[in-house]
Design a protein around this nucleic acid. Structure first.
Lengths: 181, 181
DNA sequence: CGCGGACGATAACATATGTTACCAAATGCT
DNA sequence: AGCATTTGGTAACATATGTTATCGTCCGCG
């Protein structure tokens, strides 16, 4: 039996819990076990961890995307990563048993999806060893302009691996370069 | 029909090509299409790319490990990544048609493997936004000491995302800290 | 409406890292 | 053995980035 992910997802509607939450709602705490797959109907979400008192953002997600703390979920271990909303959001949570059932039913159809995810992470990795923070910021600007507009700067800074002060410097430097009157 | 990867691999022995090559042998050029899975029986291999004239190392592999330029292989596109031996090596190459056949036969059994790879890349990513180059070097020292011993320093430097001069500084700083006579 | 916190910019200074250049030791090859 | 190449260390200087502190604005919430 072959499924596309989206069709299969619909079949589990009755198990999905709808969440309508405000900004900065914690969806998974660091150290907790992940028990859900999260689909974002509306809003924005980030994953992050705490590094001696300061937030480090790992990834951003927006409407139409899904996520989970895969390491915790798959290895049944405390999550090194926390999840919280950035904006008021509408989310659908599917509990672990049903997620595992979906995974089993999808079977080999997951392989290409997982391969593409892996390629995505390799790209991020390569970007770190090849590009300066300024270049990485410019790529964000061109490739994900909505992200720059919607996400507070200090989250973006830690995602880029730099301080918020430095990101501010980069922006003002770029703005100076663009000015011509 | 269920297989473990290793058992299945043995079944394809007759398709495997054995390569006995010296150090710095180019196995896949940047821009070429990847047509093989490579298993390392002996030796060491790195993946890298050229960034305006200078090498950036992405990953290291040693005996018992396998690799391929997954992006090129799976998407049938020119590879952004080159592959070459670091040491004289004995390798086994399995051509693409047989690799695809293996993938098909493994099917859903690949899912956990791919998930763990994904987690691995996420860890590398997190290390970049959390740790200083010095910390990343120390982790290499404790987690993969053989790597430090066998791989030339400038490859390690670019893998860490820093210049070889700076890596040398880090080493001498750490050595100074350890000295106590 | 007003207040406090979140957000963003900037300055001044400290530290980390890159670049270039030079030298010494190790290694490979003939 | 001898030479060229690779590898690794160090110094001096330039640049990038972090840290701390201060300020102004905006925005949510009582």
């Amino acid at each position: 039996m072959l499924y596309k992910f989206r069709e299969l997802w619909e079949q589990y509607q009755s198990f999905q819990r709808r969440l309508d939450v405000g900004a900065k709602t914690l969806l998974l705490e660091e150290g907790q076990r992940s028990e859900h797959y999260i689909y974002i109907e509306k809003g924005a979400v980030r994953t992050y961890f705490n590094n001696n008192g300061e937030d480090k953002t790992v990834q951003f997600f927006f409407e139409g995307e899904g996520l989970m703390a895969i390491e915790s979920f798959m290895n049944d271990a405390p999550s090194p990563i926390a999840i919280e909303t950035i904006e008021p959001s509408v989310l659908y949570l599917l509990p672990k048993p049903q997620v595992l059932e979906m995974v089993a039913r999808l079977g080999a159809q997951l392989v290409p999806l997982l391969v593409q995810r892996q390629i995505h992470y390799m790209h991020e990795f390569v970007s770190f060893i090849r590009d300066t923070p300024e270049q990485r910021y410019q790529q964000l600007l061109t490739e994900r302009p909505q992200l720059i507009l919607r996400v507070p700067q200090h989250y973006i800074a830690s995602y880029l691996g730099i301080s918020k002060v430095h990101l501010s410097r980069i922006k003002s430097k770029l703005a100076k370069g663009k000015r011509h009157f």
